[in-house]
Design a protein around this nucleic acid. Structure first.
Lengths: 226, 226
DNA sequence: TCTGACTTGTCAACGCCCTGTAAAGAGTGA
DNA sequence: TCACTCTTTACAGGGCGTTGACAAGTCAGA
C-alpha cells in the first residue's frame, strides 16, 4: 500500500485530503508545519509528499530544498495558492516533481499523485536511474548506457532526456522544451531543439532515422515512448 | 459574458444568488432540482455550475457524478451545509472543482467562481482524453482510437476535433472554425473547413456518408454531438 | 413536383512549410 | 590557445494542408 505524507497547516484541508487519500486506499501521515513535515519525511520515508507552500516554521519550499539537499529523491507535489507563479517555478527548480494550484479538485491532485508514483516506480529505487529498451540512464550520476555500453552524454542532452522521461507519452511542443529545458523566456525561432533531439536519437535509438523512443509528431512536437 | 447555472431548491437563496450574479454581469439560469439542473447543464452548457448538495429528486452529488460520467468537463462549485465533511470529500472525488460551505458570504462564492473560470479558461485544452461512441481521443498524446484501434490523425484534424469537443452541441459556423482553429484573420472563401470535416468523419464516423457525431446544419455550419 | 440557385461532399494535385541533418560559427572553461 | 559543447545557418526531402473543379445534395418558389 502506497504511503502519502500530507504537509498542510489548514486543518480542514488536511482532513479532507486525509479522508480522500484514505478512501483511495493510501496510508496517510499528516504534518501541520514544515519542521514536522521534514522530520516525518525522513523518518517514515513515504512514497510521495504533498506539500503546501505556505507553512508555519519552515515553508514548503524550504522543506523541499532541505530534502533534496540531503539527497532524498522521493516525489514531491507542491500545493500553491492561486497566482503564486513564482512559487511554481521555484518549486520545480528546487526539485518538486509537480504542483497543483489551489483551489483544486481532489481528483486532480489524485491524478498527479498517481502520475508521480508511476514515474518513480519505474525507477530503480535509490539509484535514480531509468530504463527503456536496452538503454539505462542515471540522471543523478549523468550516465547513459546502451546495451550495457557506456555512452557519452552532455548536460543539455541529459536534461532534455530527463524532461522527456518525466513527460513520457505526452506530445511536447518545441516551445515548451525551450521553456522547460532551456529555460528561455523568449522563444527564438531556431532549430536548436531539433538539433539536440537528433543528437539524443543517435545515442539512444537503434536506428536514428526510424526512431522508436523519441518520435516526431508533425506540426506538434516530440513524444517520448519509454 | 459568462453564464452560470444555479441549482438550488431554496427559492430565497436562489433569488439572492441570481440577483448577485446578475449584478456582477453574469447570465444566470436557475434549476430548482437536480433533474432540471442536469438537463439545463447539458442543454445550455453554462461556463460554471453552482450546485447545492441537498436537492430534491437528484442530489447535487448525483448531478455532478452524472455530468462527469458523460464526459462534461464544465467547472462545478458545490454548496455544502456546514459539517458535511463527507460531502466535501465526496464532491471533490466526484469531480467538483471547488466547494463553499453554508453559510457563506456572496463575495466568497463569487471569488471561487472567478477562480474556477480563470482556471478552466487557462486550462490547457489538451489535457486528458475524451470519449464518444466507440471513439477515444487523447489530445495531449495526439492519439485517436476507434473501436480500440489506433487511427492516424494530423495536427489540424486534432485541433478541429478539439474545438468541436469544447463546443459540443453548438452549431459552429465555418467562419468561426476558420477563426478559432485556423487562426485566420481574413476569411478566405475556401472549402478547407469542409475538407477537414470530411477527413475527420472518415476517422471517427461509422458511416461517414451518414454522420452521427459531426452533423451538417445547412447554411449554418457544423454541430458536434458527443 | 419540378426547376434553378445555392450549399456541401469529394478528389487529386500542387506547393508550402515543417523536419532531418551536416557544417560553420559562437561561447565557455581549462 | 585548444577542446568541447551549444547554437545557428543552410539546404534537401517529404508530409499534409490548401485549392479549384466538379458532383451531389438541399431548399424555396413556381
Amino acid at each position: 500500500m502506497a504511503r502519502v505524507l500530507v504537509v498542510e497547516d489548514d486543518a480542514a484541508m488536511a482532513a479532507a485530503l486525509r479522508d480522500g487519500f484514505a478512501y483511495e486506499g493510501y496510508e496517510v501521515s499528516w504534518a501541520p508545519d514544515g519542521e514536522t513535515g521534514l522530520r516525518l519525511a525522513k523518518e517514515t520515508s513515504p512514497d510521495v509528499v504533498v506539500l503546501d507552500v505556505m507553512l508555519p516554521k519552515l515553508s514548503g519550499l524550504d522543506v523541499c530544498k532541505r530534502l533534496r539537499a540531503e539527497g532524498h529523491a522521493l516525489p514531491i507535489i507542491m500545493l500553491t495558492a492561486r497566482g503564486q507563479e513564482i512559487d511554481k517555478v521555484l518549486g520545480l527548480k528546487l526539485g518538486a516533481d509537480d504542483y497543483v494550484t489551489k483551489p483544486f479538485g481532489f481528483m486532480e491532485l489524485m491524478a498527479r499523485v498517481e502520475a508521480v508514483l508511476r514515474r518513480s516506480s519505474g525507477r530503480t529505487p535509490g539509484t535514480g536511474s531509468y530504463g527503456f529498451g536496452d538503454v539505462v540512464v542515471d540522471f543523478s550520476r549523468a550516465e547513459l548506457r546502451k546495451g550495457g555500453r557506456p555512452v557519452e552524454i552532455t548536460a543539455r542532452e541529459l536534461k532534455l532526456l530527463e524532461y522527456f522521461v518525466a513527460n513520457r507519452g505526452e506530445v511536447i511542443p518545441r516551445e515548451r522544451l525551450l521553456d522547460r529545458v532551456w529555460e528561455y523566456d523568449s522563444v527564438p525561432l531556431t532549430r536548436t531543439v531539433d538539433m539536440h533531439v537528433a543528437k539524443l536519437r543517435r545515442k539512444i535509438e537503434d536506428d536514428p532515422a526510424d526512431p522508436r523512443f523519441i518520435v516526431t509528431v508533425h506540426r506538434m512536437g516530440y513524444k517520448f515512448l519509454g
